[in-house]
Design a protein around this nucleic acid. Sequence first.
DNA 1: TAAATTATTTGACATTTATCAAACACTTAT
DNA 2: ATAAGTGTTTGATAAATGTCAAATAATTTA
Lengths: 192, 192
Amino acid sequence: MLPGLNKYLHFIQQIYPLSQESLEALAPFLNHKSFVKKDYLVKQGDISNELFIIMSGCVREYFEDAHANEINTWFGIENAIAVSTYSFFSLKPSLTNIQALEDTETIVIRQEDIQKLFNEFHEIERLGRLLAEQYLVQIDEIKIILQTLSAKQRYEYILQHKPELVQRIPLKYLASFLGIKLETLSRVRGQK
Amino acid sequence: MLPGLNKYLHFIQQIYPLSQESLEALAPFLNHKSFVKKDYLVKQGDISNELFIIMSGCVREYFEDAHANEINTWFGIENAIAVSTYSFFSLKPSLTNIQALEDTETIVIRQEDIQKLFNEFHEIERLGRLLAEQYLVQIDEIKIILQTLSAKQRYEYILQHKPELVQRIPLKYLASFLGIKLETLSRVRGQK
DNA sequence: TAAATTATTTGACATTTATCAAACACTTAT
DNA sequence: ATAAGTGTTTGATAAATGTCAAATAATTTA
């Protein structure tokens, strides 16, 4: 049996409890993958047909813009699902990299296996739907922060609502996630 | 039979073709609702348990911030699905209003009916999953624009990728959607 | 532990965007 | 057709954020 699987299953069960039957069907398709700091889970340009549940550690999703600046678009820590959504859903080349910021343990499942499980088990597809809905609401929240708040307010929001991120993610990565420059973020932190 | 339903079904069939059986099960739960300009499809604070497919017309989603400014978070035109996602998925009070910007014809389906259909028809739940995934990718695209681009670049992006929006949505609404002020948007349009 | 590397802060200044007020343009209702 | 209301542009100025360079702090590696 896959080490750490119980913890993963518990996390999943909170979102939508699966029957014993589904769990047993799911288990063989789950694999463990470890990454050391700076390893890539997903590379920009590749078709990313894997979904990662982060058991421990922390990752960033980013891409390079026209001026070769890195834009960080998402961060994931324990219990988050790291997936290059566009690529995973459409099986087209990934627009982003996903990279480990710490040594990171994951459970991986492949797109084609999920597809098979979706076909066979309605309730697994339900779980998939609920996860997509949750993910959507989370991204929408970030989008609204960016539509609404000033640099300082963005930092305070993230500090209040995602303090783990501020602790664990280097500021230089947080800045572009918040849509501001590193120096501005640094200054905004100084104020109160 | 519901007028306009065929067109709606065609739109849905492109995302995931449903069997005749599912279509027949779905049809009785679809209703037509018309809105005149300025009518509300969803009111902030209400639990919004309806999902609207826009047959014709155009809507905005917005909320009022702390200073009673309206922040427009989303726009929908023909074939878009208008839904207060957070409220619809969690059945908690809506954080946003959805308002008709033109006279608007919609097909409505209720959350509890969708739930029943999801329970009964796996393939309808699959359609739901795929729609959630599509919606997610669209929102993520907007989020990345806000993380990355200057006022001028945001306008150019939207002009290039969603020209219908620029034509149909008053600039005063587009501005907050792009995370900038009306005057800045106006100026940025002037340049070239 | 020291040196090298990486991350963050600070300063001076440039640029972008916001603010407030007014003018202008366009639409709607009488 | 006119007046009233809405929407957009323009101008002057203020505030926020970006840029570039350098200093400091923290972390990693030899």
